[in-house]
């Protein structure tokens, strides 16, 4: 296989284990089900919110224990996560489709598969459009054959965003992002025959990911305003923090 730069190996080492994550989230859902059964069947949307909330907790845990991030003060850590959580959450969902999923369906972190046509059929226009654009992004990343190593780098690239306002350790964050970019470029050069153009395509995918994550936040905010979002969890806290 291609030579993997040392930094990329370190990033891979920080990645959570997919099976462990699955087990943890399923256990959490079963725990919550006890509460649901006494009332009525949970709505699909609130079930999805619980899953998203648990994924978000695992993203925070990944960041907290990751190289470079551990060195930051909690105040900077919070600013970076407040800024990047929705992109990281969406990347988590999308990378799962590329690494483990199959065409035409959405693979959840719990291992369940949902037909994309079913989602689009039952969803309102906002969620249907989000799903379709997400699917197009999955197709692009699939064509680019983005692998686990690259997804691992991209997560750090998103997290260490030097454009976030009022960072105390702006220098370290900027330097980490530059290191990530170099490692990603170095790695893509060893794997791809199209060299730079593939790297540029990857960066274009990231800007699409960013606009999709904004749409996802808008959608969740709308759901929150109409009283459909479960409260008192990390997902709703992150939504509020960005509005404040």
């Amino acid at each position: 296989g291609p030579r993997i730069p040392q930094l990329v190996l370190e990033f891979l080492h920080c990645d959570p284990d997919e099976l462990q994550l699955r087990r943890k989230i399923i256990a959490r859902l079963q725990q919550e089900q006890t509460g649901w059964e006494t009332h009525r069947d949970p709505e699909t949307f609130s079930l999805m919110c619980t899953i998203a909330d648990q994924m978000l907790c695992s993203i925070v845990e990944w960041a907290r224990t990751s190289i470079f991030f551990r060195q930051l003060k909690v105040s900077d850590q919070m600013k970076l996560l407040h800024h990047g959580w929705s992109e990281l959450l969406l990347l988590d969902i999308i990378s799962r489709q590329i690494l483990y999923g199959k065409e035409g369906s959405l693979l959840l972190v719990t291992g369940q598969e949902v037909e994309l046509s079913d989602i689009v059929f039952h969803a309102g226009p906002a969620l249907a459009s989000l799903t379709q654009r997400g699917q197009k992004l999955v197709e692009k990343l699939h064509i680019l054959k983005v692998d686990r190593q690259e997804f691992s780098c991209i997560k750090f690239f998103i997290l260490f965003n030097p454009d976030v306002k009022e960072l105390e350790d702006h220098g370290l964050i900027k330097s980490v992002q530059e290191q990530v970019e170099r490692a990603l470029l170095e790695y893509t050069l060893t794997t791809s025959s199209q060299y730079l153009s593939r790297f540029v395509d990857l960066l274009l995918c990231l800007s699409e990911l960013r606009s999709l994550s904004t749409l996802m936040e808008d959608y969740l905010n709308f759901k929150h305003l109409s009283g459909e979002m479960p409260c008192n969890n990390l997902l709703s806290e992150m939504l509020h923090a960005k509005q404040a």
Partner: peptide, 18 residues
């Protein structure tokens, strides 16, 4: 505003040795 971010702060601040 501090109270608003209580959960994130808790998750980041928690002590693994406990």
């Amino acid at each position: 505003k501090k109270k608003d971010n209580a959960l994130l702060r808790y998750l980041l601040d928690k002590d693994d040795t406990v």
